[in-house]
Design a protein around this nucleic acid. Structure first.
Lengths: 206, 206
DNA sequence: CCTACCGATCGGTAGG
DNA sequence: CCTACCGATCGGTAGG
């Protein structure tokens, strides 16, 4: 019980530290010092550094799910939900849900050249995420609200690219209108692909 | 003379190593072993690790300029040059000009949470690059070939986002059609914004 | 450009 | 969860 709470506290801090200084740059000594406990005491919760990294990825995924994805799923399926997901992501970026920006964007660019279980876990998480967007797109098409000519994979690629761009402008360039630009780009693209639009709704998300 | 050649050889290897394992993950010992020389012999070419990192960024910029930007500038100014720059970037991605993918994309996401001179140097390089794209867009507008209603900063943001997305799909997901998807996205966007198009040209780059 | 070092920190272990 | 360690590697220096 208490061990579980400690473990969770370690991992919550590990997630933020990793978003700031990298998942590879995460060191047990630094993390222990940050939490005011001994290195070996912290280490006892994990079998190896790799295990710590894998557990950190899992907790990051949970936080993303709780803070971003689940709320967006309240929107009605189809076009509204697709929009809600995009908005939720940009809001997650703006709110700095992870101290150093999107954990998964950082981890992806950090580990794309480092084969191993950590890279595989990040790739799986990102793949799940991309598949999730694709399904939201396909649903909007099934509802007859989105042009069926566009391949869901293509549109998901474009939307996710804008997310990377937003994270970059926000975290690296500290541009205040980073999120606005990203939202404009997504809105233009989705509005152009929209079918049977309601005038009221079009106005609502402008 | 010989010292300069050695220094250049060290930095060329440093650039590729950094693109694979990160600019922070770059260690002097690893680099020296890779090049078959002593740690201190290598270190003597630089005053500190930070100097090595800053020199690595410079050489990466030079390689990008030589292999990607300069050839694209052969295209006639305006819309053709804007297209050529985008094509050149996607080709640079596909050709793996840096062993582990785009050095600057990786460095941006790695250092956005690590204040200091290294982060500043990467931010400056990225800022120069974004400004360069913006100017290419503005030129196409001046030539009357691109819709003047679109803000150059906005379109540059969108194009650069697609570049990040392409690098991610190519390096992390190992998707063969990553570059095709990115090219499609850019082509669609630019074609929609194009004014006074020639039928012949439109067909040529489809 | 080398050998031979330095103190600090790395991931990890022993034993309690 | 701790103290007290381990060998390896880190960035960096002295002296040649």
């Amino acid at each position: 019980m208490k061990g579980d709470r400690t473990r969770q506290a370690i991992l919550e801090r590990a997630v933020d530290l990793a978003s700031l200084e990298g998942l590879a740059g995460l060191t047990i000594g630094r993390l222990a010092e940050d939490l005011g406990m001994s290195k070996s005491g912290l280490f006892a919760h994990f079998g190896s550094k790799e295990d710590l990294q894998l557990a950190t990825i899992e907790v990051a995924g949970q936080r993303f799910l709780d803070e971003t994805l689940k709320p967006a799923l309240q929107a009605e399926r189809g076009f509204p939900r697709l929009l809600a997901i995009c908005r939720a992501w940009l809001d997650y970026c703006r709110r700095d849900v992870f101290e150093g920006g999107c954990f998964f964007a950082a981890a992806s660019f950090e580990f794309d050249g480092r084969p191993g279980p950590v890279r595989d876990a990040i790739a799986t998480a990102m793949n799940d995420w991309m598949t999730f967007i694709e399904k939201a797109i396909a649903m909007a098409q099934e509802e007859g609200q989105l042009d069926s000519d566009i391949e869901p994979k293509q549109l998901a690629f474009e939307i996710n690219s804008i997310f990377f761009g937003a994270n970059f402008s926000w975290q690296m360039c500290r541009e205040k209108d980073a999120i606005d630009r990203a939202w404009k780009a997504i809105e233009w693209r989705l509005d152009a692909l929209r079918t049977t639009p309601t005038k009221q709704r079009r106005r609502a998300h402008r």
